[in-house]
Design a protein around this nucleic acid. Structure first.
Length: 189
DNA sequence: CAGAAGATCTGC
DNA sequence: CAGATCTTCTGC
């Protein structure tokens, strides 16, 4: 499912809504898969309570959480009810609304990096906890299918930023300048 | 109920 | 490399 999301589009409808409304967003070029119980890196590793309960619910729903006191991250719930699995959307290649997505970003940040990384992506699309539980098929923020089956090569590697040592290669990305940076050297602790 | 850690990003 | 900054979870 994570692989299938590469090449799809993530867009936000803005302005007054319906016809003629503007959108911002872009092409999904980097994702990470998170499993249910048994995946130590996942919020859903524990019982289906608390914030991660969304992950155990209906697929196609957004799981948005706040972290490090600074950033939001957005996932798409991707498995059947009860499984507790989601895909973190980590980076977009900007396609629509470049100016809108720049608002609030550092002025010296290159255009192709405004949605590069899960925190930047949420800032660019103004995604916060109000969108937690929202519908990614018909909601304000939604995922659209790719316009071609040709996505190019899909790369994979270990997930970024986890504090648990976990080697499963569940980070996936396409060749794009908007893919977020390589993993930091694991800090010695 | 207090304390710590966290699926991050930025600027020094 | 440390600081920002707050929600969630854990342990007592």
């Amino acid at each position: 499912m994570a692989r299938d999301l590469l090449g799809c589009y993530l867009v936000r409808r803005r302005g007054r809504g319906d016809v003629g409304g503007r959108i911002s967003g872009g092409r999904i070029v980097e994702v990470e898969a998170y499993g249910g119980p048994g995946d130590p890196g996942s919020h859903a590793d524990r019982a289906p309570n608390g914030r991660a309960s969304i992950m155990f619910g209906e697929p196609g729903i957004a799981y948005v959480y706040f972290t490090y006191g600074m950033h939001h991250c957005m996932n798409a719930v991707c498995d059947r009810v009860g499984q507790g699995s989601a895909v973190l959307i980590r980076a977009l290649e900007p396609v629509w609304g470049a100016r809108a997505m720049r608002l609030g970003a550092p002025t010296n940040l290159a255009d192709h990096l405004v949605a590069s990384g899960p925190g930047r992506l949420c800032r660019a699309l103004r995604i916060d906890k109000r969108l937690n539980g929202s519908d990614l098929v018909n909601g304000t923020v939604r995922i659209l299918p790719p316009d071609t089956t040709e996505r190019g090569e899909i790369h994979d590697g270990i997930r970024i930023g986890l504090t648990s040592d976990d080697e499963r290669p569940w980070r996936f990305w396409l060749d794009s300048p908007s893919v977020s940076r390589s993993p930091r050297p694991r800090s010695r602790r």
